[in-house]
Design a protein around this nucleic acid. Structure first.
Length: 205
DNA sequence: AGCCCGATGTCCT
DNA sequence: GGACATCGGGCTA
């Protein structure tokens, strides 16, 4: 994916990434991939829900300040990873959280990664329908933080199929109740009818 | 379908 | 010391 595609505000990039593919090459050469069907935009310094709110710049948040297309993988709740794509411009800490993908290639391996911890087969529907689930399925952890997704052959993005506005739904973001007025902003994008998103889309009243 | 809760490490006050 | 961009299991309906 060209860096120019990601060199836009995170809300534009979040919408544009629907239909694109997230790809991963394992050490043994196996390729895993999935189509992005759910994203959230985090709009940098002004966004109370963003790790970079107020321009907070630390070791952890640094990837969001790096050039567009840099991966930001963070560890949360003591056991999970979540993956973002930095957007906008260098030194402008926007990011797009990848919340769900439709598994395409390497599904057997994804099932192994997801099932390994519990010794119980994970349902296909539950393979990648959440930000930490897709990281576990794709074997994405802190070792893949700060990767340049525009040039890496280990983790990268590809332009995929066009998703029309009619197929797209927007809702508030998940799990950020403590973000003041920003909690209500519709900064989550989903492919409405996709069975692969983390929670069923419901039109807002 | 919901609600509750425990697991568990890291970041920031 | 509290919060956390989560998940899965267990419960009540």
């Amino acid at each position: 994916m060209a860096r120019s595609f990601l060199s836009r505000p995170a809300d534009e990039v979040a919408r544009a990434l629907l239909g694109c593919r997230l790809c991963r090459r394992l050490d043994d050469g196996t390729v895993l991939s999935g189509m992005i069907v759910e994203t959230e935009a985090y709009l940098g310094p002004e966004d109370q829900a963003a790790h970079s709110f107020g321009g907070r710049r630390t070791e952890r948040t640094e990837p969001m300040f790096m050039r567009p297309g840099t991966s930001y993988v963070y560890f949360t709740y003591g056991m999970h990873y979540c993956m973002n794509v930095s957007a906008a411009a260098e030194n402008v800490p926007h990011a797009v959280l990848l919340r769900a993908i439709e598994p395409l290639e390497g599904i057997e391996r994804m099932l192994e990664f997801r099932s390994a911890s519990r010794g119980k087969l994970v349902r296909l529907q539950d393979l990648c329908n959440g930000p930490a689930k897709l990281c576990q399925a794709m074997s994405i952890d802190r070792g893949l933080n700060r990767v340049d997704l525009c040039s890496s052959d280990v983790l990268w993005l590809e332009r995929g199929k066009k998703v029309s506005d009619l197929e797209v739904g927007q809702t508030p973001r998940i799990g950020i109740a403590n973000a003041g007025t920003w909690a209500d902003r519709p900064l989550r994008w989903v492919v409405r009818e996709s069975p692969w998103i983390s929670r069923r889309f419901r039109a807002q009243s």
